[in-house]
Simulated assay, not measured.
Amino acid sequence: MDPHLLRTFTEVVRCASFSGAARELGYTQSAVSQHIAALEADLGVELLRRRPVTPTEAGARLLEHAEPLLLRLAAARAEVTRVSGAPAARITAGVSAPAMGGRLARAVARLRAQRPRAEVTLRVLERAAVVAGVTAGDLDLGLVDGAAAPSDPLGMPGAGALRAVRCAEEELVVALAADHPLARRSGLRLADLTDALWVDAPAAAVSPAGLHPAAAGEGFRTGVRYEGPDVRGVLDLVGAGLGPVLLPRSAVAGRQGVVAVPLAAPRLVHRTELLHRRGGPGEAAGALAALPTAADPPELTA
């Protein structure tokens, strides 16, 4: 059994969703379906029921073995690496929660393939803490995100001594409960939502507090404040009808009970930027920042 297929299988079971597993692993949903089909063909038995996504009896038995097997494989790799004698590169990166995802995971995977002994630590922090950590040298590099006009930088406070490199950019959408009166709109202006009670999740989404300049001075009221980095937890609140939130489209895609309505005005995008000290990100950190592939746009290039 291919361990890559086993890893996909365990993630699908954990998420109870093919699309959810695709987001977590950085694959397309089609690739995840192909992995599961290949594993079922190899074993000659159905492993997952599709609607809803749950393991069959055979799948449940496989799951009991898969997780220990994957753990042993990881332990074996670590042990072989430990005795190889080559010095290990150590990279510590600070990441604001919405900047996490498949692109970052693929970049780290490519780095590990290039440098098997690299020890990569990812610290999920608030945006300001990422900036402070890179500035102080506690972090080799940082990935931060936020809303900006297409032609403007993020303008992170305190980042003046750092170099910021644009890594990724995507559409910013308004996430609403599926039964919200505005959910069927083809686009929304922020002015359409000035009377709404927002979900304020400053560590996981674009905070209403940061929308005032973009909305020409209009105020926004908070109904629920979510103090944590888990985007899925924020979307649970949105799906329960507790208020809208601004997120990149990829964070909302495939989420049941939540719809993504494009933000028509003002024109804003969700941008991810790579931060490192102006003297350079260092040899190992530079490798993480310069690993595009033909199939993956060069979003982490310095």
Rank of each mutant, 00 (worst) to 15 (best):
A159T: 12
L70A: 05
S84G: 04
M156S: 09
A113L: 13
L39Y: 05
E46Y: 03
P116N: 11
V252R: 11
G102N: 03
L62V: 00
R277Q: 09
L47D: 01
A177V: 05
R166D: 09
P248K: 00
G286Y: 01
R184Q: 15
L111N: 12
A289L: 12
S30E: 08
V144L: 09
V206L: 00
G101H: 13
R255A: 05
G233M: 06
R163C: 00
D195G: 10
M100S: 13
R277W: 06
V165P: 01
E57H: 02
L122S: 13
V130F: 05
P208T: 03
G137I: 01
H35Q: 15
L5F: 12
R106E: 15
E218C: 12
S96R: 08
A159W: 12
V45I: 14
A113F: 12
G282M: 07
V199K: 00
T222A: 07
P157S: 10
A147M: 07
A113Y: 11
L193Q: 01
H276T: 14
A290F: 00
V261E: 14
A159Y: 10
R249D: 06
G102T: 01
P87Y: 05
R61N: 07
R185Y: 03
A107H: 08
D195C: 03
P52E: 13
G155Q: 12
R106D: 14
Q34E: 12
F9P: 02
G243I: 06
Q34H: 13
A264E: 14
E11G: 04
S30L: 11
S186R: 14
A88R: 14
M100P: 06
S96C: 06
E119W: 12
G137R: 06
E57G: 00
W198H: 00
L70V: 06
V245N: 00
A203F: 00
A113S: 15
G59Y: 00
S19W: 08
A128G: 14
G133I: 04
L25P: 12
A290R: 13
Y27H: 11
L300S: 01
A37C: 09
Q256C: 08
P202V: 02
H212V: 14
